[in-house]
Amino acid sequence: MTRADHRSRTEPGPPSSPPVPGRAGRTGRAPAPRTARGRTSLLGRVAPPVLVVLLLLVVWQGAVTALDVRPQVLPSPLRVLEQGWAFRAVLWANTLPTLQVTAVGFAVSLAVGWVLAVGVDFSPWLRRALVPLLVASQTLPIIAVAPLMIIWFGFGLLPKVLVIALVTFFPIAVGLIEGFARADPEAANLLRSMGGGRWAEFRYVRLPGALPSFFTALRIAITYAVTGAIFAEYVGARAGLGIYMAQQKNSFRTDLVLAAVAVTALVSVALFGLTYLVERVVAPWIKGARR
């Protein structure tokens, strides 16, 4: 979300003579300004991408059947579905550890992101010290670091949590830092005139004002988190979708690799959708404000 649309919705509605007590009658509640796009139904938003995916699957199925491709190279979507269903117990058993790793890693990432962002917001010194390091942390090639994590921390939870935290804390921290900084300096003056200090400014202005960019960052980060978990497991794990993919690839079960990929995609989309639910509960006002 840009600053521009942040401002535009604070513009007053169409000018009208204000309802003055004892004068002309009022005409009830003003309707909330909403765009037609915001009113698109859930079906209207979900149907187009689903249709495109179905179309691609049909093309894929037709091509594999027509060209008679060996399933070890490229299985048909129906075969992936059929085998995935046959191996559903194993897939599920490997999905749970991945979900667990993702949840723990993301929780660590959220905690680190918030602590860093709040620290940076309160201390100019910390801002100068940490912001360049945050950027530098993103230049680390995860593909090289992840195997080292296994060497250092073994096959348990810790190395995976660290990989996930490393790939996801950055968007969260940056989203928050920029969200805090978006606060109107005049709002700070208003709070000071009311007798409030820096803490009041943070609590009443900067923190709530940062929530829209926080939720945007959260959505980016949650998709990275699942991919990060898969990658960490791929390098080495006892169980999980990542290591399952690696094993099936080695035994040329391309269909089961793709079935695991499909499960990963479903998990990511579900978690992505969950962020909207959380937003609706934590900050319902954003929905009306966002275009």
């Binding site: 604070t10 007053p12 509605g13 169409p14 000018p15 204000p18 009022r26 509640r29 003003a30 909330a32």
Partner: peptide, 19 residues
């Protein structure tokens, strides 16, 4: 007295400029 009765639970975006 401020001509805002009934708008206690509204969001600011629902108010006109004068309100």
């Amino acid at each position: 007295p401020f001509g805002l009765a009934g708008f206690e639970r509204s969001r600011p975006a629902e108010l006109s400029g004068g309100m």
